[in-house]
Design a protein around this nucleic acid. Structure first.
Length: 289
DNA sequence: AAGGTGCGCAACCGCCGGAGG
DNA sequence: GCCTCCGGCGGTTGCGCACCT
């Protein structure tokens, strides 16, 4: 509101219906009387006036979802907002910065001494570098985790996610199923919900591996449009195959045969349970879509 | 009551990518 | 291929309110 007069502030706070009519009539034309450009009006509409927007009172469920999605996606607020009907990216972003960042122990902008504009920007650039193609991610496309400071996703995982999600052909991570077992067995046993489990694993390593003879299935460039519908934001295949079976179903039988001891069988059973949890999560993603 | 402080939230800023000429 | 315009996005700002002293 640096440049806005009291009058313009009042006018913009006028009823949504009035502004909506004005917007329709003007078709994005600059609203002279408001001292607002079309872009500002659009923003006002999207974040505040649009019908169906829920205001305030973020429920515990929503909060939980935000936290989980943030762990998955980083600061990709638009994408997170897309999973929360009636919530705007701005609202979620604000809610995170003011409330959840504290709860989750993440960086909070207000916890820092504010610097003058230029100084702050320099600091931001020092920390995150200039924006470029790699960190500017279109939410419409499958892409990697956010790259700003708040993202909790481990660097390695983030790297893998980015590589995979931006459509690189091939799989740069290659471990066999033994590694898959290992990585799952060393996970935090205290993790109670499947999302925690989901966070604790390296998606790329754990699910892009052991897929013998089906690499093309995981290669986005070879997908058809129809096939794309079965891929989530990570480019992960999550159609009925996953809900009905564990990833071991897509591994070769030879590798399954390697699991000889009872201990390993138990581990596999445990893994199966966890993967079912994951599958249920991915089913949820389908519902969102 | 008055001043100070912290915080929530709407708005602004600047960048990027896509569309169209 | 280049340019311009515009929508979309994430980061940041600052007003205004509530609370505290």
């Amino acid at each position: 509101m640096k440049s806005s007069s009291t009058m313009s502030r009042f006018m913009v706070k006028a009823s949504g219906d009035v502004l909506l009519k004005m917007l329709i009539l003007n078709l994005g034309f600059c609203l002279e009387g408001l001292n607002r450009c079309a872009k500002s009006c659009r923003l006002r509409w999207l974040n505040y006036l649009r019908p169906g927007i829920k205001r305030g009172d973020i429920t515990e469920e929503e909060e939980d979802l935000i936290i989980r999605l943030h762990r998955l996606l980083g600061n990709r607020w638009a994408l997170i907002a897309g999973r929360l009907p009636g919530r705007t990216d701005n609202e979620i972003k604000n809610y995170w910065n003011t409330t959840l960042a504290k709860k989750c122990g993440s960086f909070s902008p207000r916890s820092c001494v504010r610097k003058p504009n230029s100084e702050q920007k320099m600091l931001h650039y020092q920390n995150h570098g200039p924006r470029n193609n790699s960190d500017r991610i279109n939410a419409d496309q499958p892409s990697g985790a956010g790259t700003c400071g708040i993202a909790i996703i481990p660097q390695e995982e983030k790297h893998c996610l980015e590589e995979k999600s931006i459509g690189l052909v091939g799989n740069s991570c290659s471990i066999d199923n033994q590694d898959l077992f290992s990585s799952l067995l060393v996970r935090d046993e205290g993790a109670e919900d499947h999302l925690s489990f989901l966070m604790s694993i390296d998606i790329n390593k754990d699910f892009m591996t052991g897929v013998t003879g089906s690499d093309s299935q995981l290669c986005p460039s070879n997908r058809t449009a129809h096939e794309d519908n079965n891929y989530d934001i990570f480019g992960e295949l999550h159609n009925n195959n996953l809900t009905s079976s564990s990833p071991f179903d897509v591994t070769s039988d030879d590798q399954v045969v390697k699991v000889e001891s009872k201990v390993m069988c138990d581990q596999q059973l445990s893994l199966h349970v966890e993967l079912k949890k994951l599958a249920s999560f991915l089913d949820l993603e389908d519902e969102w879509n």
